[in-house]
Write a protein that binds this DNA or RNA. Structure first.
Lengths: 259, 259
DNA sequence: CGTCTGGTTGATACGACTCAAATTTGGTGG
DNA sequence: CCACCAAATTTGAGTCGTATCAACCAGACG
């Protein structure tokens, strides 16, 4: 009894990979585009939970595509403090173009155990050369990433601890929804309160208190690695959440592939 | 008696525009490359201090290049709070590729009166097609922008108010230095304490106190729109500043134009 | 069954905010 | 050149949000 009534209908067809689902929030892809994205998953790698995928100071080479699990980009201070600067979920790409820089200025760590695909620069160039629609969608994706970073700055700089936590949870929920990883009003949510603390610039203790308050207010429940949002609209208000930065409304529809 | 002894020697040649100086922190440009960058300044626009260049919700069209003055990207919350998410100084480009998005998710405001150049998408495409070295440098520049956003997240999330202010000032000083806008250990610094507050997520009152403390500690002086840093190394330590994110060490030198 | 990681609770401390007023600076027009 | 005004900075007193520290508890796992 858990048919995913909310995901895109997909009768019989092979399941679209998360990255395709995400890019289709921008423009409709052709079967050929999707197949090309499928083919990016040739060079797989598995990473254990809590290991680093790549560390500050190393030389960036391939692009990574998250297939399964959660990861985070983070930066650390000499005094040991850590800031998570973005969360990566299935369908997210990291380090497009990064070969231009000589060394990483931040690290990427696995939150859960991870399945990622390594994509060489050549592969990526071939993809964008042969699939201009995908190329455009990748630019859109990169711009959305940047917009998300800006929204996080707003979050850290101006929102109260309460709205800050609410905002983060809601963003993740919506991002997971676009890649088909929600069921109704809930989704897996493997980040620990410690991770949430590092992402919001709060302490784990305070995150815990905010989560309890949010729960008491009927805005969300987080338990056993599972998030449930009883009332999206109420949470949206509490978080002062404006979804415009996610640019999810098919802005590139003029490029849509004919069905 | 104000020969700028610290800028790149430039005997008799026409002065390099700020954007060229900046890109040359990545790779040495040819005379032709520089000339092409010069030609980007055909469509000029002047903006008064404290006016907006473009507002959230508007349709992004051209790319802007800051020629003179300071600007900032910012986002606001329904309750009126404002977060500056980046500061723009001469040589900075905004919204490369932004035409892909249908609407701006943030605004750009002038801090001082501003001279900017408007660059059409076609102009930009011609430039990158004809000047691959510049194209690479622009990619580098965009990556540095993103790295800077990440560093700001670290700043807001993990540094104390004291280091946070120190870090911001030092970053600006170094960025201005790469475009030749410092004289020795000082530079113009037109941002108000209010601007600094909005950029650091502090209140103006508290920024004021931190500046006084930094001054008392001999780390910097800010007065009459002018910044002076007596001891860069001491400030670097206090700010826990790691310059790696600015990627200023000619990482693309393998692409250098022959002199 | 014991260990470990993550979550929860309470008491206390402090960094940063708020509010309000005074002062200085910079710009403008007489 | 001075008088005036608005904007920016500075100061002080009091408060509040979030951090800190230290236990304790609950599941997950070997």
């Amino acid at each position: 009894m858990r048919t995913s009534t909310l995901s895109t209908p997909n009768n019989g067809a092979p399941p679209r990979p998360a990255v395709a689902l995400k890019l289709e929030a921008f423009t409709r892809l052709s079967g050929d585009d999707v197949a090309a994205l499928q083919r990016l998953t040739r060079n797989l790698r598995t990473i254990e939970a809590r290991r680093d995928l790549i560390r500050e100071g190393e030389v960036p080479v391939q692009t990574h595509l998250i297939l399964k699990g959660w990861a985070c980009r983070y930066k650390s201070l000499p005094d040991g403090k850590r800031q998570i600067v973005s969360l990566l979920v299935p369908g997210d790409l990291c380090d497009l173009n990064n070969h231009v820089l000589r060394e990483m200025d931040h690290s990427i760590g696995a939150i859960t155990s991870l399945k990622v695909s390594l994509i060489s620069r050549d592969e990526m160039e071939a993809l964008t050369a042969e699939h201009p629609r995908v190329a455009q969608a990748l630019i859109w994706d990169a711009l959305v990433d940047q917009a998300t970073q800006r929204e996080w700055l707003l979050n850290l700089g101006q929102r109260s601890a309460y709205s800050r936590v609410a905002h983060l949870m809601l963003e993740l929920f919506l991002r997971l929804r676009t890649v088909g990883l929600t069921i109704g009003q809930s989704c897996d949510f493997p980040a620990t309160q410690n991770d949430l603390a590092d992402a919001t610039g709060l302490t784990a203790v305070h995150v815990n208190r905010m989560l309890q308050e949010l729960r008491a207010d009927g805005l969300l429940e987080l338990e056993r690695r599972r998030l449930f949002i009883p009332d999206l609209e109420a949470l949206r208000t509490a978080a002062m959440f404006n979804p415009n930065y996610l640019h999810l409304d098919h802005e590139g529809r003029s490029l849509d592939a004919s069905v």
